[in-house]
Amino acid sequence: MNELKLLLWELLGELSELRERVSLLEQRLNVPASGETDTRATVGDGQNLVDLYLEGYHVCPMAYGRVREEECLFCVVFLAKSGGQNELSGR
């Protein structure tokens, strides 16, 4: 049973990484034609994760992309580690 839990945990982590990659690729495809830069699409600033969290979605690896019913400690910790905590606390 523990082996299944570990395998599920690893698969959820991989799924989270794949969703993040798809999101980044989609953002790159939606580059404004006039040459303007979108600050939300900047990789590594954590703002897009903060925006997703504030819109009511999980950003933690265990439940990434699922609708959030209440605050999630895992998401908050993940945002703090990814540098998005400052943006979250500033709103």
Rank of each mutant, 00 (worst) to 15 (best):
M1S: 14
M1T: 10
E3N: 05
E3H: 05
E3K: 10
E3R: 08
L4T: 00
L6N: 14
L7T: 10
W9D: 09
E10Q: 15
L11V: 04
L12G: 01
L12R: 11
G13V: 06
S16V: 01
E17F: 00
R19D: 05
E20F: 03
R21V: 14
S23T: 10
S23H: 14
L24Q: 13
L24N: 11
L24T: 07
L25R: 08
E26D: 11
E26F: 05
Q27C: 07
R28H: 08
R28L: 12
A33F: 04
S34N: 15
G35C: 01
G35H: 02
E36S: 12
E36N: 10
E36I: 06
D38M: 05
T39K: 14
T39C: 10
T39Y: 14
R40K: 08
A41S: 13
T42D: 11
T42Q: 14
T42H: 03
G44Y: 03
D45M: 01
Q47N: 04
Q47S: 06
L49G: 06
V50D: 02
V50G: 03
D51L: 05
D51A: 00
L52Y: 04
L52E: 12
L52P: 03
Y53C: 02
Y53R: 07
L54W: 00
G56D: 02
Y57K: 05
H58F: 09
V59H: 03
C60G: 01
C60F: 02
M62D: 07
A63H: 15
Y64A: 14
Y64D: 14
Y64M: 15
G65L: 06
R66L: 13
V67G: 04
V67L: 10
V67S: 08
R68G: 02
R68N: 02
E69C: 10
E70Y: 11
C72Y: 04
F74P: 00
C75F: 07
V76C: 04
V77A: 13
L79K: 01
L79M: 00
A80T: 09
A80N: 15
K81F: 09
K81W: 13
K81R: 15
S82I: 04
S82V: 09
G83A: 00
G83V: 03
L88A: 05
L88E: 03
L88M: 05
G90F: 10
G90V: 10
G90M: 13
G90L: 12
R91W: 15
R91P: 07
